[in-house]
Simulated assay, not measured.
Amino acid sequence: MVIETPTPDLAAVRTEPSTIRESTGYRTFRVANVVVLLVVCAVTLYPFVNLVAKAFSSEGFIAAGEVNVLPRGFNLETFKVVLGDSLFWTNYRNTVVYTVVGTVISMALTTTFAYALSRRELKGRTFFIGIAVFTMFFSGGLIPNYILVADLLGMRNSMWAIVVPTAISVFNLLVMKSFFENFPTELEEAAAIDGLTTYGIFFRIVLPLSKAVLATMTLFYAVSQWNSWFSAFLYLDQKEMFPVTVYLRNLIAAATNPGVGSGAAEAVQIGANIQSVTMLLTVLPIICFYPFIQRYFVSGVMLGSVKG
């Protein structure tokens, strides 16, 4: 005996309207949240927009404080002077070379060191981690560092004085170590069974699957190296070896101090305009480079920060 279950008439089924409504407090919170975020974005973007506006404005409007978000008295004279200075392009090329070489060295040392520290079977692992963390809080000081780099290592007036002493950032090292510690051990065990050595596992398995954290650390190192100026100011004496950040520093100092002379500063207008033009030209490559790795940025930091 089969009991048939009557099929309900779908046409008779009424769809009741949703009775869930947002409360007044929640709507107020959403509006306030949007307003606060818009204010934060405006405050964050205003300095850069003002910088661009000053770069294309004339000296009279800048001196009068009338330049805010739009250029006043459109002017390209400072751009012509700065871009026409051969020393600017020489220092710009130096910055590119220092950034590329420094980032490659930093990534090579950081990834290998972090991977070694992430292996719990490493003998003396705690000691090496302690040494790395110790350098975050204590340093030898400016004078001992200068003697070490300039005299003992003989790196004065060379590119290596810029890229070697700051090759490893302990913060980046610890982030990558945490990322490698969370890496699936099953993949490494399977690769070892297939006959891969430790170096083979690292280069053929671990690194290809670590694009997020590698892109993030590359951005950190590249931006830090690009913006660095104190090491070059300290260890370099030849203008032809300066990075563009030192050129920017000297140009601003010459423009804001009448007693200081500079080849490019003699023809430019006022300090604010010079500063805006050179800063805009300096940060432009980083701004163009960032969107290509922005999708890796958040995931790379978060994946490496699961464990301390």
Rank of each mutant, 00 (worst) to 15 (best):
A11G: 14
V13M: 15
R14G: 10
P17Q: 12
P17E: 08
P17G: 11
I20H: 12
S23T: 09
F29I: 05
V31Y: 15
A32E: 04
V34G: 02
V36N: 09
V36C: 14
L37A: 13
L45D: 02
Y46N: 04
F48P: 01
V49A: 14
V52Y: 14
S58V: 04
G65K: 07
V67T: 09
V69L: 10
P71T: 00
F74T: 01
T78G: 10
K80N: 04
V81I: 06
F88A: 02
R93F: 09
N94W: 00
T95W: 07
I105Q: 07
I105M: 15
A108L: 08
A108R: 02
A108P: 00
L109I: 03
T112A: 12
Y115I: 00
L117S: 09
S118G: 06
R120I: 02
L122W: 01
G124F: 01
F127Q: 03
F128R: 10
I131T: 14
T135H: 14
M136H: 11
F137Q: 10
G140T: 08
L142P: 01
N145M: 09
I147Q: 14
L148Y: 06
L148T: 06
L148G: 04
R156Y: 00
N157C: 05
S158T: 07
M159E: 01
A161G: 12
V163N: 11
V164S: 11
T166Y: 15
T166H: 13
I168T: 13
V170G: 13
N172V: 02
L174N: 08
L174R: 10
S178I: 01
E181Y: 13
N182C: 03
E186T: 09
A190M: 05
A191L: 04
A191I: 01
I193R: 12
I193G: 04
D194I: 01
Y199C: 02
G200D: 03
F202M: 04
R204C: 00
L207A: 02
V213W: 15
T216A: 06
T218E: 01
A222Y: 05
S231Y: 06
F233L: 12
K239S: 05
F242W: 15
V246T: 07
Y247L: 01
L248H: 12
R249A: 08
N250M: 02
L251D: 04
L251E: 02
I252Y: 06
A254R: 09
A254H: 06
G259A: 03
S262P: 00
S262M: 09
A265Y: 13
E266S: 11
A267I: 01
Q269N: 08
I270G: 14
G271R: 11
V277N: 15
M279L: 13
L284A: 15
I287C: 12
Y296N: 13
G300D: 06
G300E: 07
V301E: 05
L303K: 13
S305V: 00
V306T: 09
V306K: 12
